[in-house]
Write a protein that binds this DNA or RNA. Structure first.
Lengths: 330, 330
DNA sequence: GATCGTCCTGTAAACGCTTACATGTGTGGG
DNA sequence: CCCACACATGTAAGCGTTTACAGGACGATC
């Protein structure tokens, strides 16, 4: 089943069939109708690989994430795919599992499949691997880690805003002994959150009380950090976690210690993953809209692909506190 | 950058380069080494679209799911992709959003991209759409909904086993007034779970007490169903939910009513999504291994693709109760 | 009626690879 | 020394599209 058979059935040349498929305006309506009918009758779907081969455009996009199993990503993936499918693009996904070697594999796969562009939505990114893409002039969008260039754009997430709002909220609730549980410190994005926490504390004259514990952005790390915090002579009255998973771990540790959130300790997360409002109590957290991130990334990629040079290559996603029930005044 | 340039650099013909890439055994080791070096130096990646065009095999697999945002799916997707990538295959994902129209779109996309096979991992499937695949002899694997054929296999999930174990567990804990919250009744898989519940009750001589409430496999449905159950003159002492999301909704409703799990009501879920052990208390549920499902689906698909006719086309995934802390004796 | 332009349609050459078949080279047996 | 044969490599067709270019029909203009 190919374009030739359609041509034969519609009694036209393959060129006309192709033009009809591609909505070229230079086909007589009557002819186009005949072709469309033949397509219908034969149930013909054009072969995208042949199209790609000649046109050079694969209508596929790469989306690289850390781990689809991490609740941060499914929404992101979904929104990104929705955008793509709406515009007749396919997306192929790569999970790096936080592993540079796997990241290299992902990039290779994308290059082989001749994707029209790649969105790298992981917090960590190895510049050496990225060259593989830029060298081939493949449009690339980064999250936090990139430097804008002729074929790449960067999406900054304004972590500081969310952290400041969280701090302000706790402060207004009379908390003064506030702890922060970080994620892996090798991540730029984690350092930004930490720095925002410290600067917020300092702005309120609280810097000497900085309680910082290290987590790993996973549940277990949050629980461990919280246990350390609880062992302190003067435990914090409020805790901000670098992400929701960490906060969920902390929540468990607090419960296990026989304490209650928010009665004994106030707790704030970051990201607003879908389970954040299902915890007991529902978690006050900072919203980082994955939909907005996906839409922005997609738009940035499209702009890059169309080489809209006038377009800026730097975007920012805001973050905001959403109050639920894990914080309370003291 | 194409095979010709590599050929020129290695001073061989394109055929030899192709043979080297495909590990044909009939290339002299010395020549192959020269070719490989040229490939290395030029940083050449073969164009998969061209390969597909001539070989007919795209090395792409389709994976159709309901909604990546539903916590049932990410693990499934991940395991499936892992399998695929290990074997040099790409997977393209389709979200149906529980909508037959979108399912049609997914299938169309997969056909256009000439996938070598499709795994349809949704509970609902429209036979009319499926013909689109079978007509083209595209190997297809179903979950629950398919009938094995020359190009298709079916993976049955043994829901009944899990439900029976759950019931047995509650029974041994002296519960007698046990309710069941279903999902959407148009799903075969939901009807199976419900039937298993009823037959289990009957086997224990409890059939006249069957308390069945309808949910929607989402949190809100679980909460609503639970609220109805709590309004009963004689509320159940234990509840089995058709899936974990439903159980989580029920859990919230129970809490909101000022009652406690498991002290006042025992609760059992189904699926063991990753958040099931993060609820307060951790949810006793029925494990349905998504990894096992993905591995089986992939293996079934591969067998179909290779036309291993001797292979069976019917697989079963077991389900088992995992006890955590949402159940207790009365 | 010749000339020109405008539309529409057809012809055929790519795109980058695989592979059947042809060709060339070296080996051993007669 | 010649032939057969195995083995390595090259030649070229073909996969299903798109698209530059050519060609033909028709109407308008002079």
């Amino acid at each position: 089943m190919n374009i030739k058979e359609v041509a034969k059935r519609a009694k036209v040349s393959t060129a006309t069939v192709s033009r009809t498929i591609n909505d070229s305006e230079k086909v007589k309506p009557g002819t186009a109708a005949r072709v469309r009918q033949a397509i219908e009758e034969l149930n013909f779907y054009p072969n995208t690989h042949a199209r790609t081969l000649v046109s050079g455009r694969s209508r596929m996009l790469g989306l690289i994430i850390s781990d689809i199993t991490n609740p941060f990503f499914p929404e992101l993936v979904k929104s990104f795919e929705d955008q793509a499918v709406q515009r007749g693009q396919e997306v192929i996904i790569g999970n790096t599992d936080y592993n540079p070697k796997r990241m290299a594999g992902c990039i290779r796969r994308m290059v082989e499949r001749k994707v029209d562009g790649v969105a790298i939505m992981t917090s960590e990114a190895d510049p050496a691997l990225i060259t593989e893409l830029t060298r081939r002039n493949i449009p690339t969008v980064f999250m936090d880690t990139g430097k804008p260039g002729p074929h790449s754009a960067n999406i900054r997430i304004d972590y500081a805003q969310g952290i400041h709002e969280a701090l302000q909220h706790l402060f207004s609730l009379n908390h003064r002994r506030i702890a922060f549980i970080t994620g892996p410190m090798n991540l730029e994005s984690v350092r930004i959150r930490r720095a925002a926490f410290l600067s917020g504390l300092k702005a309120r004259g609280l810097s000497e009380r900085a309680l910082i514990e290290k987590g790993d952005h996973r549940i277990e790390g949050g629980a461990m950090a919280m246990r350390s915090l609880l062992k302190l002579a003067q435990p914090p009255t409020a805790v901000i976690a670098s992400n929701d998973l960490t906060a969920i771990g902390a929540l468990g540790a607090i419960h296990d210690a026989g304490l209650k959130v928010p009665d004994d300790i106030s707790l704030i997360g970051f990201d607003d993953i879908s389970f954040a409002h299902l915890t007991q109590p529902p978690l006050t957290t900072v919203i980082l809209s994955r939909t907005q991130l996906a839409v922005t990334a997609f738009a940035a990629l499209e702009a890059l692909i169309r080489k809209e040079d006038g377009s800026h290559a730097d975007y920012t996603i805001p973050t905001h506190l959403v109050m639920r029930r894990s914080t309370r005044a003291i």
